[in-house]
Nucleic acid binder design. Structure first.
Length: 281
DNA sequence: CTCCTGTCCTGCCGGC
DNA sequence: TGCCGGCAGGACAGGA
């Protein structure tokens, strides 16, 4: 599920609720997700105060006192729910972690497919940790620009679509926003990455930034009191232009009039790509 | 090295 | 109604 904007939204939703609070209990309801939960997990969390919340790529980093970071990755189907003080905690299927805080709030991590990860890493070592060491630039940060993207694409023999999904090239872009950004930039997803350059790179950088920024805004606007009505963070409805729009008319050209049949769906590396063959050359 | 495929897991949807 | 195949927003290991 979640790409950068959804992860950012979850983090922003958690921040005002748990910042400064102390963890009083952990109910760990199974032993692993994709990877095992940390040894002595509750012991290491209990009594810890939340000092910071950050996002890196699609990871949420929750800084604890005593020098450890609680790292959460939502995988494909992870969700976080906030149960406010005074409300009953009713557990549902696939609720794997239940964190209680001294301010009365409860946080639940739910993940049906269990592709997510939750682990601890020392504050001083997280950047060299194997999950973070090879990550590319943040697309909304200063280290993401046309020259930098071009440098990372120039030796890539794969398609531009697959290159954008490679977290070493740029982080946070997943299947949906890769499709959307390529559409905005007018680039064919099948085009070889190394052949995307010049003005097209400029357009692509702008498209990636725009599409992610707009999605974060949409996510933020769905956060009512920093959570959905049902308490869930992480899922919100977007209107995608091409993603999941197979057969629809492309909004910016007359592709379906000349019976090219509008938005097309193809498979690249086993994953769906949606695009307009007329607009995206 | 790079690139591609298979795999982890459950839920949902459409076709028969 | 039930069963089955296909597909789903991610990321990794392993093989070519």
């Amino acid at each position: 599920m979640p790409e950068l904007p959804e992860v950012e939204t979850v983090m922003r939703g958690l921040e005002p609720v748990i910042m400064g609070a102390e963890i009083t209990a952990l109910d760990q309801r199974r032993k692993n997700l994709r990877i095992p939960f940390p040894d002595k997990f509750e012991k290491r969390l209990k009594g810890r105060k939340i000092l910071s919340l950050r996002r890196r790529a699609k990871y949420i980093l929750i800084g604890l006192d005593k020098g450890e970071i609680l790292v959460i990755h939502l995988g494909m189907s992870g969700r976080v729910s906030i149960i406010p003080k005074g409300e009953d905690v009713e557990l549902e299927k696939h609720d794997h972690l239940v964190l209680s805080f001294d301010n009365g709030v409860t946080i639940i991590y739910n993940d049906p497919r269990r592709f997510g990860m939750v682990f601890l890493v020392a504050e001083s070592e997280w950047e060299s940790h194997k999950n973070f060491a090879h990550l590319g630039p943040e697309p909304l940060g200063n280290d993401f620009s046309a020259p930098i993207l071009q440098a990372r694409l120039k030796d890539k023999n794969t398609s531009i679509k697959q290159a954008l999904l490679d977290q070493r090239v740029v982080v946070g872009v997943g299947n949906i926003y890769a499709c959307e950004a390529l559409f905005m930039a007018g680039i064919n997803p099948l085009k070889k990455a190394r052949l995307v350059k010049g003005a097209k790179i400029e357009l692509l950088v702008k498209a990636i930034r725009d599409v992610l920024t707009r999605a974060i805004k949409a996510g933020g606007s769905t956060l009512k009191d920093y959570r959905h009505a049902d308490g869930q963070l992480g899922y919100f409805q977007h209107n995608f232009t091409v993603y999941n729009q197979e057969g629809a008319k492309c909004p910016t050209c007359d592709c379906d009039i000349n019976k090219t049949n509008g938005i097309k769906r193809i498979i690249q590396s086993g994953r769906s790509t949606f695009y307009c063959p007329k607009k995206q050359k």
